[in-house]
Write a protein that binds this DNA or RNA. Structure first.
Lengths: 144, 144
DNA sequence: CTACATGCAAAAAATTTGCACCACC
DNA sequence: GGTGGTGCAAATTTTTTGCATGTAG
């Protein structure tokens, strides 16, 4: 249950543990692709969890502020959320044909980049997003 | 006038050169930060250029499809556009306090990363986004 | 108890669509 | 002269806000 790590983090930060927060963390920990508010709401309701969309928006915002989840934007207009990975979050491969999303296996050390940025730009990087857009293996086979 | 490069590219692709397209390219070539539809519309109007927001949306979409401009999403909910850089587009440093956006000087070879991704994931990368979020030099001074 | 979480409805903001008309090639 | 660009208004979608009520700590 890595979920408990996040619960613990919230508690440590003096935040309340409410059913909605618990449920959001649970759903996010069971999905690999970053989820939109709509998808999360749908999944919660499917599980019989009664919750309002406003609350989902508000709690996603709160969880993001508390460093529990992370927001990414792909090609569509919706924000997507994923759980913050303690070892640094991962990056994504977004297929422009089928829309599937894989996690990228990356060996770059952006940590080093961030140090360079601090030196050259006097800019303290707190987080970053790195996303790749293209054609996934399956779509590549289908159409050349 | 690097603007002409983009005009030429559009022509080469059999696209029409309309006043709106020309104006959008002109405005984007004079701004360093990626612009939202709203900002672009405002700048066009300020220049006395009469155009409707729907048209701006439609032309931004068209220009993106034709590889003239590139869309990025930061922390707010708006899509932003910048001209495609022929040497590869640049990355950004987004200040979470004042919202300013600088271009990052980067020395990473994402090209190499993309080759690795093709091998490991069978995923053909067409483009990527890499954005850093943090505290810019000015804000860093102000508040510690 | 009390501050914060929640639901509902309504507002605001961002984007898209339908349709008539205009202009470039 | 026909395809595609444009404007306007209205619809849709996404997100936010106000306020009354419930609930975790």
């Amino acid at each position: 249950m890595s979920e408990n790590v996040f619960i613990a983090k919230l508690l440590a930060q003096g935040e309340r543990i409410t059913p909605v927060r618990r449920a959001l963390i649970a759903v996010l920990s069971k999905t690999q692709e970053p989820q939109t508010q709509q998808e999360l709401l749908r999944q919660l309701k499917k599980k019989g969890f009664k919750v309002n969309k406003t609350t989902v928006y508000r709690q996603l915002e709160a969880l993001e502020k508390n460093g529990i989840i992370f927001a990414v934007h792909f090609t569509d207009r919706n924000k997507r959320y994923e759980l913050m990975d303690e070892n640094g979050h991962h990056h994504h491969l977004v297929c422009l044909k089928c829309g599937c999303i894989e996690d990228a296996i990356l060996m770059s050390d952006l940590k080093q980049q961030e140090k360079t940025i601090l030196k050259k730009h006097k800019f303290k990087v707190l987080r970053h997003t790195l996303e790749f857009f293209g054609i996934c293996g399956r779509c590549g086979k289908k159409s050349g």
